[in-house]
């Protein structure tokens, strides 16, 4: 909460949800609605899909009728979040190849060195320390299995 309501954001998110609601309704129509033993698989999704379409269109309409206002998007801050998410997603994808320890160390290095602009030596130390700490605490002490890569850890 606390974010300034943005007219364009409401408009576009409303349209996206209307599309999702339409997809739900179309899918639900392919499943049984009411059978001899009672409601089928399509009964519940059909109704919440219809509700989603109706509410999202109401959101679109109300945002279209509202006067322009609210804060714009802070692209610099959004860029930092986007970079962090991309790094996280890349780290998840890399887990299969290089294992959790290496991919997590690389993610940490990126956050410290690039997003928080700390010296490379600091970033490398933090990255190695947290990755090693996770390996010791979770894999060795708690026996939790972590994704391993071609290197075997």
């Amino acid at each position: 909460m606390g974010e300034t309501t943005n007219r364009a954001a409401d408009f576009w998110s409303g349209l996206a949800l209307a599309a999702l609601g339409t997809y739900i309704v179309l899918e639900a129509r392919q499943w049984e609605y009411l059978g001899p033993e009672g409601p089928g698989a399509g009964f519940f999704p059909l109704w919440y899909g219809i509700a989603m379409v109706a509410l999202s269109l109401a959101l679109v309409a109300s945002s279209a009728l509202r006067k322009p206002g609210g804060g714009g998007i802070d692209w610099r801050n959004a860029g930092r979040s986007a970079a962090a998410w991309l790094a996280f997603a890349a780290s998840v994808a890399a887990c299969k190849l290089v294992g959790f320890a290496v991919s997590f160390a690389l993610l940490t290095f990126f956050i410290v060195a690039v997003l928080y602009r700390r010296p490379l030596a600091v970033a490398a130390t933090v990255a190695v320390a947290v990755a090693a700490g996770f390996q010791v605490v979770f894999a060795m002490a708690l026996g939790v299995s972590l994704p391993s890569g071609v290197l075997g850890f």
Binding site: A84, F88, S91, F104, T108, I111, L115, R118, V130, F134
Partner: peptide, 9 residues
Amino acid sequence: YVLYPLIFG
């Protein structure tokens, strides 16, 4: 910058 990677991990 230490806390956030820990949460991700």
